[in-house]
């Protein structure tokens, strides 16, 4: 087994092109190997010291959040909290404080679990994945990146260097809400993110809703714009709940039955739209929504 510590992005890309797998926080790779999910790759390249991948700031085409940004940073970074609040909501719910300090956004995105918490927020915020290899770079919309549970359309020699998002419009807000049975060390049973822009009259001017853990990939709900625009937030939220329930294709497993998941994802979608609209209207709902309103509030 070889373990290379990359000093630069070029080093990392060269190692990946030669067959090494990238590792940053290791919260999926190492824990998965310990639990017998998949053995550690023979060749690893550590990318955690490539500082340029840990930055949040203006990039080509919008604001780039580097792949090495940790969940702990996402939940507290002023820019993320202000503009991409749903992403901060999601990051704050992941695992435990130690998981959040080690686990990275890039790892979460490329692990491609449909139950990932940061996926639905990135979807509704219109993020694109920035992939780079020794041969060049490209940007891929997330619904094209995620192809199934644990699989992506990235090539073996491509490294996710970050995600790029557009600045939030005026009078917009976002939120991520998750069903959880306990308040720490939890994994999404179902979750929903919403991004909402309000018109001058307080009705919905634009909206997107995406769902966690109810389909083979994070699911962007179709037809949300048409169904929600022009409605007041309450009735828009009900409409979103209906669409979410219809389009979800959940499974039954130890965490929940398919019918309970289908019901609850509608509830989460409704709550996400309501919270996003309240934020769009200027209300300061602390991150994460799960700890600020409803059953999980302190």
């Amino acid at each position: 087994m070889s373990f290379l510590i990359a000093e630069s992005l070029d080093d990392a890309l060269a190692a990946i092109a030669a067959g090494a797998r990238p590792i940053a926080g290791g919260t999926d790779l190492v824990v998965g190997a310990r639990h017998g999910k998949e053995a550690l790759p023979d060749e690893l390249v550590a990318i955690d010291r490539i500082d340029q991948l840990a930055e949040i700031g203006p990039g080509p085409g919008g604001i780039r959040i580097g792949a090495l940004v940790t969940h702990a940073t996402l939940m507290t970074d002023p820019l993320v909290v202000a503009e991409f609040t749903a992403l901060a909501d999601a990051a704050a719910l992941v695992g435990s404080p130690s998981t959040r300090h080690v686990g990275t956004l890039g790892g979460n995105v490329m692990n491609a679990s449909p139950a990932m918490d940061t996926g639905a927020p990135l979807m509704v915020l219109g993020a694109v994945a920035d992939l780079q290899s020794v041969g060049g770079s490209r940007s891929v919309p997330l619904d094209e990146l995620w192809t199934g549970p644990g699989t992506t359309s990235a090539q073996a020699d491509e490294l996710l260097i970050g995600v790029t998002l557009s600045s939030a419009p005026q009078r917009s807000g976002s939120a991520y809400v998750r069903l959880e049975y306990r308040r720490a060390m939890e994994i999404a049973v179902v979750g929903a993110a919403a991004a909402v822009t309000l018109g001058d009259d307080g009705t919905i001017a634009a909206a997107e809703v995406a769902l966690s853990a109810v389909a083979p990939t994070v699911l962007l709900v179709e037809g949300v714009g048409d169904a929600l625009v022009g409605r007041d937030p309450e009735s828009a939220a009900s409409a979103a709940a209906g669409l979410a329930g219809e389009q979800a294709s959940p499974i039954s497993d130890l965490r929940a039955s398919d019918s309970y998941r289908r019901h609850c994802v509608g509830v989460m979608a409704k709550r996400a739209v309501v919270a996003a609209a309240r934020r769009a209207a200027g209300e300061d709902i602390a991150v994460p929504v799960n700890r600020s309103i409803g059953i999980g509030a302190a």
């Binding site: 308040r183 720490a184 130890l254």
Partner: peptide, 29 residues
């Protein structure tokens, strides 16, 4: 009362012999 409980499959084997799926209460609860 709320979150634990062993689940068995039809094969008579435990389905949740791990702390992710066998949910203890945490300090946060």
């Amino acid at each position: 009362a709320l979150t634990e409980g062993t689940r068995y499959g039809d094969d008579g084997r435990q389905q949740n012999p791990a702390l992710l799926e066998y949910k203890l209460q945490t300090a946060a609860d």
